[in-house]
């Protein structure tokens, strides 16, 4: 599978996220320091495409984003919901390639 470049590192605020469109898929791409993570932008609780707008942080050792509507936490690395382990969102391989933000779908 090939990598798709969605934007440059500077297009995403440090320790925050941005929404990206690859084909028909809406992604939430996050930047933590210089590392990149990608999840489905669809929040299963609110059913709105908003995860990219959540606050990025950590719970214990786990890097997370908090859904901006109802504040459930999703692991950036694994996609599961910390409050409800029956729920998870899709995660996609993502990387920072010399300042380019790339994802694999």
């Amino acid at each position: 599978m090939s990598w798709t470049t969605v934007c440059t590192l500077d297009d995403i605020l440090p320790n925050a996220g941005a929404a990206a469109l690859v084909g028909d898929t809406q992604l939430a791409v996050f930047r933590v320091d210089d590392r990149i993570f990608a999840l489905d932008n669809h929040c299963p609780f609110s059913r709105a495409n908003v995860l990219a707008r959540g606050i990025v942080g950590s719970v214990g050792e786990t890097l997370v984003v908090a859904s901006p509507l109802y504040k459930q936490h999703f692991s950036l690395e694994a996609g599961h919901c910390l409050e409800d382990d029956s729920i998870s969102v899709r995660r996609f391989p993502a990387r920072n390639e010399n300042g380019l933000v790339q994802v694999q779908l």
Partner: peptide, 10 residues
């Protein structure tokens, strides 16, 4: 410590 969260950041 850590990375912050939806409580301390706002």
């Amino acid at each position: 410590s850590g990375k912050g969260c939806a409580i301390c950041k706002p």
